[in-house]
Write a protein that binds this DNA or RNA. Structure first.
Length: 424
RNA sequence: AGAGGGUUGGCGGAGCGGUUUAACGCGGCGGUCUUGAAAACCGUUGUGCUCGCGAGAGUACCGGGGGUUCGAAUCCCUCACCCUCUACCA
């Protein structure tokens, strides 16, 4: 959420930022917001004044009662009737204005950081790094869904039977490969200083608002019937909300948490070419990193997290590239994002396997995640997160890149985790 | 799931209709004393919003929401959560 005080003082900058993100009718939205804000403040001023008068009256009545001046007290009571009804009316108006303003603010995305490149879509993202040798593997002729079938690693039909499309069943060595990756990613994160967390994978509405999934992504989460609870689309939601309404001691910073969770996404309306096999699922596993850090240091964390995910991909010997998202491709709540993509030789395409973002104060303002500075003033912290890493596409890339005519080799670093060196 | 008891500031813990301007203690910060420190003593100490250049002023907040009352931390209703006992379960 953006700061209304900031918007008031930096109207043009805010509009420019929103336009960089290709937010529709930015200028109009901000003008409207400022009108609501003006109304809200005027109403609050009136309401506060009326309340101050009433408080004075009540104090007098109290004194009169104690002095036994019942007649005067009764007379004074009459005065309060008008004030009370005025206050009631104003308070109702104020509440409406506050809610309107709040909703308007919820609809505004975060502003992009100054370093974010201009651009409208993924095509305009900036390439930051690309592995030197993108595999030219003549044997890599099959996409992973064919390989998964051939070696009986993933059964998509069984998933259809018990749930529906997008809920694959991993079997045998496929299941073990998945579990191996989870353990590998968690162990690596532990060594990098992250605390392991097992959060709930269902969250309440407040939590979904906190990280920005609501109201923006309403309809993309699975909601439990007759409740306002949601299956998490990412561990980011419970992890970051662990610190909601906390004033964190500076010694505790930076907070570094890691969690493995299943993730659920309805992905409504996304049909077609790129959704085959493991490319896009309704349920998938992910290991997620989350950091909370001082504002002036948060971009160090972003670099650190991005470099960390790069090391993981290198350890898995996967060819990858890093792109800096342009304004138009940035997520709703993000101020800056690096995407990491691995090369899938069987499909001859790049698959996004990680997204590392700095939300600056966008989430922490919604959640009131703060610290005390040297002057004992409470200030908002910055929140960040990054996938490390989303499992299915890593599995896809491993299968496709490491295939031979008769087997799939497992990268050496994973072998202690899988217990087998190849799938034959 | 049933019965009962709870939820107060950074923490502990009073308050049960009107100097609550939330006692008291601990912790934190500042100061006095001291070569320095400790102890002691003195002062200070929450969050949001509004107004103000500022000093500051106003207002709201005692788990959430609603009600009674001139006035609610205090009384009533309701929801959430916690604890104890009983039942059940992995």
């Amino acid at each position: 959420m953006l700061d209304i005080h900031y918007i008031r003082a930096n109207k043009e900058l805010v509009i420019q930022g929103l336009q960089k993100k290709y937010f529709n009718n930015a200028a109009e939205a901000i003008e409207k917001l400022l009108v609501i804000d003006q109304q809200r403040r005027a109403t609050q001023w009136s309401a506060d004044n009326a309340a101050a008068q009433l408080n004075q009256c009540n104090k007098q009545i109290g004194q009169l009662m104690q002095q036994g001046e019942k007649k005067e007290a009764t007379a004074a009571k009459a005065q309060t009737t008008v004030l009370k009804s005025t206050i009631r009316t104003l308070a109702q108006q104020l509440q409406v204005h506050e809610e309107t303003l709040q909703h308007a603010l919820y609809e505004l995305p975060n502003l992009p950081n100054a370093e974010v490149p201009e651009g409208k879509s993924a095509a305009d993202n900036t390439l930051v790094y690309q592995s030197s040798e993108v595999l030219v593997n003549d044997a890599a002729q099959w996409p992973h869904w064919e390989l998964a079938k051939k070696y009986a690693l993933v059964d998509f039909e069984l998933g259809n039977k018990i749930m529906g499309a997008g809920f694959p069943v991993y079997k045998g060595r496929g299941a073990r490969l998945q579990r191996a990756l989870i353990n590998f990613f968690l162990d690596e994160a532990l060594h990098a200083g992250y605390e392991e967390i097992q959060p709930p994978i269902v969250v309440n509405e407040v939590s979904a608002y906190g990280t920005g999934q609501l109201p923006d992504k309403e309809g993309q989460m699975y909601q439990l019937k007759d409740t306002t609870f949601y299956l998490i689309p990412t561990a980011e939601v419970p992890l970051t909300n662990l610190y909601r309404d906390e004033i964190l001691p500076q010694e505790a910073l930076p907070i570094k948490n890691v969690a493995y969770t299943p993730c659920f996404r309805r992905e409504a309306g996304s049909w077609g070419r790129h959704v085959r096999g493991l490319n896009r699922l309704h349920q998938f596993d992910k290991v997620e990193l989350m950091q909370i850090r001082l504002p002036e240091e948060s971009y160090k964390s972003l670099q650190e997290m991005c470099a960390y995910v790069q090391r993981l991909l290198e350890k898995l010997e996967l060819p990858y590239r890093v792109v800096k998202l342009c304004g138009g491709d940035l997520g709703f709540a993000a101020a800056f994002t690096y995407d990491l993509e691995v090369w899938a030789a069987g499909q001859q395409c790049w698959l996004e396997v990680s997204s590392v973002s700095n939300f600056e104060t966008y989430q922490s303002r919604r959640m009131r995640i703060r610290y005390r500075d040297e002057h004992h003033t409470t200030r908002l912290l910055h929140t960040l997160n990054g996938s490390a890493i989303a499992l299915p596409r890593i599995v896809a890339a491993l299968l496709e890149n490491n295939q031979t005519a008769s087997s799939i080799s497992i990268p050496p670093i994973l072998q202690p985790y899988t217990g087998f060196k190849a799938i034959e």
